[in-house]
Design a protein around this nucleic acid. Structure first.
Lengths: 479, 479
DNA sequence: AACTAATGAGCCGTAACTAC
DNA sequence: GTAGTTACGGCTCATTAGTT
């Protein structure tokens, strides 16, 4: 019996007394042979031993291939088909999903435009009707937060009922139509974008909303986002006063938060809130939060006096696990920053949903995404460029700057030249110690204290819109 | 020099004096060897010839592997990595896209709800304002179709301007916000569904809209959809009267269409339309159509007299090629079926956008999808179950039934017992010949003619809503 | 200098093999 | 049987040495 023809290269691989020459073990079948095999495969990819023998007998061009080789050929052929099919299937699904995505994004866009137009028309007509705001059906029902009396906040049962109500209101904002969300200008959804963003229109306070994909586990995300000082640059401190289980596996916390003011012209804000962390029946996690009506003081009454108490309307994070790992998060931030208390020039900063979106909502999503990417090792950083290090450093810088701008008493600031009529205010800080815990930090301190000075100017005749634009993107506080 | 250890199977393959025994060509490297190779691979997946030689010298466990084998090992290793990476990349992308899709679908859903609510509120306020309808900015601008005088339809230049206008209006309905589309009840978008559907709200006539993915070339889709009688079951006939090029590569046709009535209680409709087929700058194809104001008669004035002339407002198909093959189609059907002319009980049938969506819009998308699936061979049909055969047969059945229900004079129907006061109407058809062109058809006809009888009943005290629900899903006409 | 064979390395597809 | 691994033929490409 003759073997399949082997194409030997007698002259090659001269460097070794190799054994490829003798054994003609590896042969490529001729195109006729492959054709014949393929024909059989097409009608039966898994021929029996009998069928294979029959094949060799029937087909003269296959007669010089051994039965064992035929068997192996079919095995390999099936394997190839399987691999090819899987990869083409994946590609097809991919194309389909991509196209569907495109379609949905367009539909989204169309709907967004329609919503904007309708909201606009709506507002116009409402104005024309100039009736009592009771007809405002779209937003008020949820947004006019019922005031909880102080007694509620003093017994756990009352707090639980507040928590459940907060949860419901937060969810209706996150996934329902409780608020007239309109797409954020310049933020289109897309597979490469960070997420979908919207800001509120025509409801009390300022609100922003975002949703996006993150490749982290829900619990991890909740943990990261709850630690607001780590990512929210305006957050000076967050203190958990009380913490007790809510019975259903959830947790209720009473929280006192201080934020920085964006300018020396206005006092900073603080919040006295209830935070409710729980999981839903569908496997989602929720962290939601809202202000309590009580006057829960901070740890230091003297320092708290420097703050204006602001209100957090039901807000939070809805984190839903995604099949195949990762999560979809929905973020809602809804605040009332008591804009009446700041000078008129700064008021737009406290009344712009876009500012909240940029500084809180998008910042949260960006931060969590960055962490996720670092964790998964998607991005490779060169030595000395570790994002965590950079982040810590940047955070410290901002914090220092913010502290300086705000000049809180408990940080050791005291005013000089304070006659009240000056545009420039100077304060000194004799106790501030910039020593860091990082021994590698080269910013060594000379002596035991630092003298800082800060100055501010009253901007006059600046249109509020310009000011808002200026602040929207700024990573730092401006005094 | 020693070779890598080969594990011979001396006893096996006894059936042939085979050559596997002698050449120890195939060896499996020991786990230590693989480990050593992997370590090198980790730091350099593509070592130079020198590096490989060095490796053999340095590493004693690799000393019995030939340089050529080392080279091959790295080659295969790279190949494996590549395959694995590609497949995992695809899977990751897939997961991401799926999640994004989910997110977008939810967002779409939310927006749809918001739109519905806003449209509703808007309508309410508009009513309260009870001002002139000129304030209706959302819909009227496009929907109040300007009436073209007869002169336009008589010269090509006039027709071209109508065609361009039709194109613009169709596009604004298909992709813009010219009409207040609302999502169809029970029809959610999704990768597995046929597409995204919407029906119109608050605009003149009835309208439906769909978009979806089809794996066919745009031109092929246009060709199939233009042949309306092949898929639109209510279409009795479609005749192209005039056809001339539009100059820009497009084609303008003047078309006369007859449709069946859904009941014996109402006369059937016919249409006199202009159809404009062209391609856009972005590579899309468009087939759009609208009624002409002229009284263009059908081929047979006597038969046309049995019809009520209905109006087609700018409608059509927008077919956009998709990268990676396939197309995205947008379908808009916008009709005015002159509901005033039918008995009150049937009027909902002529005023329901849902009926149009079910019978025309979705039918078109379903049909084209089915064709695409058959073409791509995705579905394997057993013998005798060919969908094309079934379709032809079903089409013929429906057509025959519809012909009988409608009883057009030119089909040979004449009334018996026609005293006008009876609820039951009987008509006979002495000329109808059901002989088919299919010789395999076993429905042999005995004799030269068939006698058919049809009967109808006036439904009384049936709530219109029930009637609409009954007709919406029915594949056949009911008399 | 331009052109041309020769060489060697890479990748791809596939045969043959081991191990389960 | 399937899954995973080793080996090989054929191909492309870039570099090099030898030729007009």
């Amino acid at each position: 019996m003759a073997m399949a023809v082997a194409h030997h290269r007698e002259s090659s691989s001269g460097s070794s007394i190799n054994k490829h020459l003798d054994a003609g073990k590896y042969v490529r079948y001729t195109s006729e042979q492959v054709e014949a095999l393929e024909r059989v495969y097409a009608e039966c990819p898994k021929p029996s031993s009998l069928r294979r023998q029959q094949l060799i007998r029937e087909c003269p061009i296959l007669s010089n291939i051994e039965p064992r080789q035929i068997k192996v050929w079919f095995q390999n052929r099936r394997c190839r088909e399987k691999q090819r099919k899987e990869s083409s299937r994946l590609q097809t699904v991919n194309r389909k999903l991509t196209a569907m995505n495109k379609l949905l994004m367009e539909e989204n866009d169309r709907l967004q435009k329609q919503v904007s137009q309708l909201v606009c028309e709506n507002g116009y007509m409402r104005q024309q009707l100039h009736t009592a705001p009771t007809t405002d059906a779209s937003c008020d029902s949820v947004v006019t937060t019922p005031q909880h009396s102080l007694r509620d906040a003093n017994n756990p049962a009352g707090l639980l009922s507040i928590a459940e109500e907060t949860l419901a209101e937060f969810l209706s904002k996150a996934t329902g139509t409780a608020v007239d969300w309109v797409q954020m200008p310049g933020m289109k959804p897309g597979p490469d974008s960070v997420g979908i963003f919207a800001i509120s229109q025509s409801c009390s306070g300022v609100a922003a909303r975002a949703c996006g994909l993150v490749s982290l586990e829900p619990t991890k995300i909740a943990e990261i986002l709850k630690d607001r000082p780590s990512w929210f640059r305006d957050c000076r401190s967050l203190e958990v006063f009380t913490m007790f289980p809510a019975g259903n596996g959830g947790t209720i916390e009473l929280i006192y938060t201080q934020t920085y003011a964006p300018s020396t012209l206005a006092p900073a804000r603080d919040f006295w809130t209830l935070r409710y962390t729980t999981s839903l029946d569908n496997g989602s996690f929720v962290v939601c939060e809202r202000s309590l009506s009580g006057s829960g003081a901070g740890p230091n009454a003297a320092s708290a006096a420097q703050f204006v108490r602001a209100e957090m309307l039901p807000s939070g994070y809805l984190i839903r696990p995604c099949e195949g790992g990762g999560s979809i998060i929905h973020i809602v931030d809804h605040l009332n920053l008591e804009a009446w208390s700041v000078p008129e020039v700064l008021r737009p900063l406290y009344e712009s949903s876009k500012v909240v979106a940029q500084r809180m909502t998008i910042a949260a999503l960006r931060y969590i995404r960055q962490i996720a990417q670092e964790t998964s090792g998607e991005v490779v950083y060169s030595l000395g460029r570790q994002p965590a290090v950079l982040r810590t450093f940047s955070q410290r810088l901002i914090r220092g700057f913010n502290d300086a701008v705000n000049g809180f008493n408990d940080d050791g600031w005291s005013l000089i030249n304070c006659d009240g009529a000056e545009d420039v205010i100077i304060a000194v800080n004799s106790t501030k110690n910039l020593t860091t815990s990082n021994p590698a930090n080269s910013l060594a301190l000379l002596g035991g204290g630092v003298l800082c000075a800060k100055a501010s100017m009253l901007l006059q005749n600046v249109p509020p819109a310009v000011l808002v634009r200026f602040f929207e993107g700024a990573p730092f506080r401006v005094g």
